[in-house]
Design a protein around this nucleic acid. Structure first.
Lengths: 139, 139
DNA sequence: ACGCGCAGGTTGACGCATCATCCAGATTTG
DNA sequence: CAAATCTGGATGATGCGTCAACCTGCGCGT
């Protein structure tokens, strides 16, 4: 089910707006940032991606003109990521439709009560994984 | 959560047994087939993959010696996919550990009651997607 | 003051997934 | 019977994600 849902969601984004799910995630985070600029590792925390994935993806998005790397004052060696006008336009156009799809296909289909159960279940799985990691580290 | 769980599951398979999640899925299906041989499109139905993904993946698995394409009696133009000894050994070794991980990290963590709710929810999402597809086709 | 570790980030190689396109043989249709 | 169509499948190009290796300054210990 998860696969089918993601496939539908991302296919829609791709066909209607030329954005991948990953593009969308980055653009949303950037557009929600008050200053409109973030460091790569902040995006990493927000999206929970590996740093190398982030770097590769930002490179590709920069080539398509959605995003720009801009030298960051105060921290010589690193760069800020900033939305281009094009990037801002893309997310503004896509977001309402994507949100509507998520609501129709997932949130409404699942319903409020089951959604709460699902949140608890997710939490429980994450706890189980964290416990396993903890054991692996010092075991 | 779904991403974290899959990552853990597949990382374990990869590191301990050198198998990807996709490899595993194919091997399980083949090893469960009474005759030990299946046509590619049967595997496609069982896994719900696109045909081109199947073809590419079988090519890679064949190169690694897990699987073999064997001309199929009765149906000249197509080929059966058969497990090699190596493939059978790989799945026999990996399956118990993988199943244990799925149980510990997912099934037990979620618990029986929540699991049932989750099944209903999945079903509801699939219905919503199917309805959308139906509308799109003749609309 | 200097060396060294480390956090943030980049790069290259590789495997994987999708799309579009093509192919052969079988089946329908005119 | 011939032409269009359908089915099962292969292939090439391209984008994505991971791993391993590497680079670069900052900060810490001595």
């Amino acid at each position: 089910m998860q696969r089918q849902l993601s496939t539908h969601l991302y296919r829609h984004l791709q066909r209607e707006f030329g954005l991948s799910g990953s593009d969308y995630e980055i653009l949303v985070n950037l557009s929600e940032a008050p200053t409109g600029r973030m460091r790569a590792f902040e995006l990493g925390e927000a999206t929970d991606w590996e740093k190398s994935r982030m770097s590769h993806h930002l490179t590709r998005m920069a080539q398509r003109g959605l995003v720009r790397r801009e030298p960051c004052a105060e921290d010589t060696r690193y760069a800020d990521i900033v939305l281009t006008d094009e990037g801002r336009a893309a997310i503004a156009e896509a977001a309402p439709y994507h949100a509507a799809n998520v609501r129709a296909w997932f949130i409404d289909a699942v319903g409020k009560e089951r959604l709460e159960v699902l949140e608890d279940a997710s939490e429980a799985v994450l706890v189980a994984l964290a416990e396993h990691d903890a054991r692996a580290e010092h075991g």
